[in-house]
Amino acid sequence: MRYGKIFLLHFQDAFHSRGRSFVYFLLSLTSPMLLLLFWQGAIREHGEVYGVWTSSAITSYYLLIAIASSFLIVHIEEDVAFRDIKDGALVKYLLRPFSYFIVKFMEELPWRVIQGLLAIVVFLFFRFIVGIPLPIVHRPLEILLVSGVFVLAFAISYVFKMVLGLTAFWTTDFWGTLSIEEFLFSVFGGIIAPLVLYPSVFARIAQVLPFAYIVYFPVVAVEGMLSIYELLRVLGAQVAWLIILYGVYLLLWNRGIKKFSSVGQ
């Protein structure tokens, strides 16, 4: 109940800054739209090379990537690293009888909800007004499994970003760490291109890392490109990554808190 109230308080704050939320939403649209333009040209000129990836398929892929990115990719790491650890605001969380992990989740969730609502509006606009066919699964079992994929993707995104933020306990410059993470996410997260269009080496590396399980696999799952077996495999990989990342989070938190000084690093 108390965490629910914390969520509502932060939702009020996030709704008050809905203009900022809209700008962040536009951010998630920009790169996929540019890549979509590139791919449409490439497929128009060399369609025979890309097989099932027609102009329509790539359009729906990137629109779904843009929509899914807006509410699946969490951005709590800067808050954790800069405000809490560097500026010392963490002390107020340590003094309260709440789990830091859950409170930060309640701080981030309202922003994701608002951007998720914007994403739904964009989805409906492109689907019903523009008329772009955005295929989504419709069988009950698939819907259930795909919902699980989305929930776990969000959970992985949150835990991963919390782990990233906690590295600020040991670094004086967090921007470098953030830049490396953004690079890896763009390359291996299915943002530049669907993983099946990558050279095989890149595709295999991407399958092993957690980035593809945050945006790429949820998108291809909702498009119905994965069989039931593949959906179960993705779910298994997501559960494994969630356990690993949460273990790393606990390790970093227990060690980092011993280093923390209340006036900041």
């Binding site: 890549l35 590139f38 791919w39 040209g41 490439a42 000129e45 060399h46 090379v49 890309y50 763009s186 390359v187 530049i192 291109a193 269009l197 990558y198 050279p199 890149f202």
Partner: peptide, 15 residues
Amino acid sequence: VITILLLTSTVPSVF
């Protein structure tokens, strides 16, 4: 550069 390498890994030219 890596982005362009990945985008053009299967085609010799675009636009």
